[in-house]
Design a protein around this nucleic acid. Structure first.
Lengths: 232, 232
DNA sequence: CGGCGGCTTGAGACCACTCAACAGTGGTGG
DNA sequence: CCACCACTGTTGAGTGGTCTCAAGCCGCCG
């Protein structure tokens, strides 16, 4: 079991600098779990009992505002850790994690964290890097929302999705999981109506082609120019 | 020298769980430095050579967008670490750090980081908590900018400043460092004109009193209600 | 085949931005 | 010590991008 797992995860950045023995050691305490599409791995506010590594599938991390609106924090790709409340000193999950397609995860009990950390110093370094990368992405979003109009924000969000989940096809780059106008609206701080209008306009221009929960970017470079150009 | 320093920093959360010997050990590699008001401790994009702890004063962390606009990431209070590019695996500073009042910092060479970490496991844990707290604050800002109108965002920003830098006075709670309308605009993604109008309105209502680079919150509770109330 | 969830599109209203002019404040140098 | 200037803040008018409200379409699944 753990031999199979190791081959799946050994090359992940989170285990960089770890020896095979250390990785086996870490994996020994993990249990695999499957979650169906639309199932929650955990919910915001729930007491954190485990932390996770996504092996296969796609997870959406979502926060609920006091007013009841939902904001998409990020989409989690295979190979990423998530639900690491323990690492940042919290005892409840700060967001809700939902499988957007059938997903396979590894789950560690929180109690395993301190000893894993003590035995594997590289894990701490890698976790700090991961947190740093997420912090930068979050700050990038703050900056975009501070300075950019809606169309540019949507363009940046879609380009980010292309980087994280793009799959080349004959027509262009497909975002390789179901994503709705509403999802994009909740990532960019706008409404599904405005997103729909923008995507329709782009479709007319030939930049993308899209359908029900599906987006194919036909002209990534032109979309990039639209996202970065300072005029207009 | 290091004995003096230790008494200043021993109670900081970043050194929680560290023994006196460990703290002395950490401080031995640090050098104090002073920065005058408006001086930059470091600039965005500059190669990171040191990481810092603010002992006294106030630092503003600011990011410049490709289009040349500035966004205020945060204000750093005494006792906080900053410029920890090394910890998150970057070799350049991601933002510019400017002293908003005359400030005193401790500076460590980046080369000290790995050995400090190796010798003080608690430092890694505390750094992860710090990063986690910043990540949450950044995400909170994303959520506010996604879902709230400008007036509420300004209210939240000012309440945050009250928590971080509030000083009780006869008139109310003073934000204890010079802060302009422009600063608030760059924290909330709006313009100094709009901030000025909002603060003028609040002044008329008696919620605050303000002047040149000065804000006193007279009615924190009413401001809180304004920030949270779902109607309007 | 019916219903539901996702998507599209139009019309109107309004918040916040832009542009513009001016007033207070504090620091500086003659 | 006063005059000047740079910086900060105030306020008005007009505009436009985005939201809200509303209606209807499409495609999938039960």
């Amino acid at each position: 079991m753990s031999a199979i797992d190791r081959s799946l995860v050994a090359c992940l950045p989170i285990f960089a600098e770890c020896s095979s023995e250390q990785i086996d050691d870490i994996l020994r305490e993990a249990r695999p779990a499957r979650f169906e599409k639309n199932a929650n791995v955990f919910e915001q506010g729930e007491k954190a009992a485990h932390f996770y590594l996504l092996l296969h599938g796609r997870i959406r991390a979502c926060k609920l505002t006091p007013a009841g609106e939902e904001v998409v924090i990020r989409f989690i790709a295979p190979g990423e850790m998530f639900g690491v409340a323990m690492a940042i000193g919290r005892d409840a999950y700060p967001a809700t994690a939902t499988a957007v397609v059938d997903s396979l995860v590894l789950a560690w009990p929180n109690s395993a964290w301190p000893s894993l950390l003590a035995r594997n110093p590289a894990l701490a370094v890698n976790t700090m890097r991961t947190l740093g990368a997420r912090l930068e992405e979050s700050q990038t979003r703050v900056i975009e929302m501070s300075t950019e109009a809606v169309e540019r924000r949507v363009a940046h969000a879609i380009l980010r999705l292309v980087n994280q989940a793009g799959r080349k096809t004959d027509d262009g780059v497909l975002i390789d999981f179901p994503i709705s106008r509403q999802d994009i609206a909740r990532m960019t701080g706008t409404t599904l109506h405005t997103v729909s209008r923008i995507l329709s306009a782009w479709q007319t221009l030939g930049l993308i082609s899209s359908g029900r929960q599906k987006i194919v970017v036909r002209e990534p470079h032109k979309l990039y120019l639209l996202a970065e150009s300072s005029e207009k």
